[in-house]
Measured scan of single mutants.
Amino acid sequence: MSIQHFRVALIPFFAAFCLPVFAHPETLVKVKDAEDQLGARVGYIELDLNSGKILESFRPEERFPMMSTFKVLLCGAVLSRVDAGQEQLGRRIHYSQNDLVEYSPVTEKHLTDGMTVRELCSAAITMSDNTAANLLLTTIGGPKELTAFLHNMGDHVTRLDRWEPELNEAIPNDERDTTMPAAMATTLRKLLTGELLTLASRQQLIDWMEADKVAGPLLRSALPAGWFIADKSGAGERGSRGIIAALGPDGKPSRIVVIYTTGSQATMDERNRQIAEIGASLIKHW
Rank of each mutant, 00 (worst) to 15 (best):
M1V: 04
I3C: 10
Q4A: 10
F6Q: 09
R7K: 10
A9R: 09
L10P: 08
I11E: 03
P12M: 14
F13Q: 05
F14I: 13
A15Y: 15
A16H: 14
F17S: 08
L19C: 15
P20M: 04
V21G: 08
F22C: 14
F22I: 07
A23S: 08
H24A: 15
P25W: 10
L28P: 05
L28R: 08
K30D: 05
K32Q: 15
D33L: 13
D33Y: 15
D33Q: 15
A34G: 07
D36K: 15
L38A: 07
L38D: 06
G39A: 14
G43N: 00
I45L: 12
I45F: 14
I45T: 12
E46V: 09
L47M: 12
L47K: 04
D48Y: 04
S51E: 13
G52H: 06
K53P: 03
K53D: 10
I54H: 11
I54L: 14
L55C: 08
L55S: 06
L55T: 08
E56M: 08
F58R: 09
R59V: 01
R59E: 03
P60R: 12
E62Q: 07
E62L: 07
R63Q: 09
P65H: 04
P65C: 04
M67K: 02
M67N: 13
M67W: 01
M67F: 04
S68E: 00
T69E: 02
T69W: 00
T69Y: 03
L73A: 11
L74I: 07
C75N: 02
A77L: 11
A77T: 10
V78Y: 03
V78A: 06
V78W: 03
V78D: 01
L79G: 02
S80D: 10
R81F: 10
R81H: 10
V82W: 07
V82H: 09
D83V: 03
Q88E: 13
L89V: 06
G90T: 13
H94T: 14
Y95G: 03
S96C: 10
S96N: 14
N98Y: 14
D99N: 09
L100C: 06
L100T: 07
V101R: 08
S104R: 03
H110I: 05
H110D: 05
L111Y: 10
T112H: 14
M115P: 01
M115Y: 03
T116Y: 05
T116V: 06
R118M: 10
L120V: 05
A123E: 04
I125Y: 00
T126Y: 04
T126C: 11
M127D: 07
M127E: 13
M127N: 08
S128C: 00
S128T: 01
S128N: 00
T131Q: 03
A132C: 03
N134C: 04
L136H: 01
T139V: 12
T139R: 10
I140C: 06
G142N: 06
G142K: 04
P143D: 03
P143H: 08
K144I: 13
L146S: 01
T147K: 08
A148S: 15
L150N: 05
H151A: 14
N152T: 14
N152A: 14
M153L: 14
M153G: 08
M153I: 13
G154P: 04
D155P: 01
H156Q: 13
V157N: 14
L160C: 11
L160I: 13
D161Y: 04
R162G: 08
E164T: 00
P165W: 05
E166V: 12
L167F: 04
L167M: 12
E169W: 14
A170G: 13
I171W: 14
I171N: 15
N173H: 12
N173F: 13
D174T: 05
E175S: 12
R176N: 08
R176W: 07
M180C: 14
P181S: 05
A182C: 13
M184G: 02
A185P: 00
A185Q: 01
A185V: 06
K190R: 14
L191K: 01
L192V: 10
L192H: 04
T193N: 15
E195R: 12
L197V: 06
L199F: 11
S201E: 02
S201A: 10
L205F: 05
I206P: 01
D207P: 02
D207R: 12
W208P: 00
A211S: 13
D212H: 05
D212P: 04
D212K: 04
D212F: 02
K213Y: 09
K213S: 11
K213P: 04
A215E: 04
S221N: 12
S221Y: 10
S221T: 13
S221W: 09
P224V: 04
A225D: 14
W227Q: 01
A230V: 06
A230F: 02
S233Y: 01
G234F: 01
G236N: 06
G236Q: 02
R241T: 05
R241M: 04
I244C: 09
A245I: 02
A245S: 10
A245W: 01
L247A: 05
L247W: 07
L247D: 00
G248A: 03
P249N: 08
D250H: 14
G251H: 15
K252Q: 11
I256C: 06
V258I: 10
I259E: 00
I259P: 00
Y260V: 07
T261M: 15
T261E: 06
T262Q: 02
G263H: 07
S264P: 03
Q265L: 14
A266H: 10
A266T: 12
A266E: 12
T267V: 09
M268W: 09
R271D: 06
N272W: 01
I275F: 12
A276E: 09
A276D: 05
G279T: 07
S281V: 15
I283P: 02
H285M: 09
W286L: 04
W286F: 05
